[in-house]
């Protein structure tokens, strides 16, 4: 098992944001977490990095307990996050943003990895010396994904990568997630409100509601489930 959360509880101020979450991701899998706004999806992603710190429960990564590890060391274990809202560094160039993705990476790999990212996202090569804040939303999302990949992670976590993007970019993002799995055997934990797309790409999926996992199964099972259809797909719940 690559990532295993067991009985995870987390609080944001006085809000009990995660209530005993059990979730597992195996190597090479795409696992999707769907749920309505405010269900605790982003909190779950961030709590893996210890922001906020889990109030109880355990997080295992490749068998190691990382629950209390300092945030910056968690990424050194091989987990990379594409945060909600992209959060690229707007006042840095595209190249500097990519350099920031290489905290613990071997510097001799930099050129290879940069070439690979620019092949995957040609727009980043064109915009290399431009300030990242001037990119469009879709371009910024590409940059955020590339920045995460620069660390050569074992586990890539994407938080709402399609949020607020034009349909063309949404298509492109899900296509890239597929390619990462197919070509590099990347393990992906994906959080999405766009349940239809997300479940189609997923090997397995979980449904989070008010901080609890209420359903889980393969992507196809959840896609066919009447509860999921009613709440997240046929125009209800998430949008």
């Amino acid at each position: 098992m690559m990532l295993q959360l067991s009985g995870l509880n987390a609080h944001y101020g006085h809000v009990h944001a995660l209530c005993g979450v059990d979730l597992a991701v195996q190597g090479g899998e795409i696992v999707t977490l769907i749920g309505a706004n405010g269900a605790g999806k982003s909190t779950l992603m961030m709590s893996i990095f210890g922001v906020p710190r889990a109030s109880s429960g355990r997080i295992l990564f490749e068998g190691e307990d990382i629950t209390q590890l300092p945030t910056h060391q968690i990424s050194h274990r091989g987990i990379a996050l594409v945060p909600e809202g992209r959060r690229i560094y707007p006042r840095m160039t595209v190249l500097e943003n990519l350099q920031m993705g290489t905290a613990k990476a071997d510097p001799t790999n930099f050129q290879t990895d940069l070439d690979r990212m620019e092949a995957l996202f040609p727009i980043l090569a064109d915009r290399r010396d431009q300030r990242a804040g001037t990119l469009s939303g879709g371009e910024q999302q590409m940059l955020a994904i590339a920045r995460a990949l620069m660390s050569r992670p074992k586990l890539l976590m994407l938080d709402e990568p399609s949020l607020g993007l034009a349909p063309l970019y949404i298509k492109k993002i899900f296509q890239i997630i597929r390619e990462l799995k197919r070509d590099f055997g990347m393990t992906v934990l994906l959080v999405e409100q766009n349940a239809n797309h997300a479940l189609k790409v997923a090997d397995r999926a979980y449904v989070l509601q008010h901080g609890r996992i209420v359903l889980s199964g393969t992507g196809a099972e959840l896609l066919a489930s009447p509860e999921v259809r009613a709440a997240y797909l046929d125009g209800g719940g998430g949008h």
Partner: peptide
């Protein structure tokens, strides 16, 4: 400069 712009993300990046 990264810390000036986003400390949480800078931590998460390692």
């Amino acid at each position: 400069r990264a810390c000036e712009q986003d400390q949480v993300v800078t931590k998460v990046l390692g």
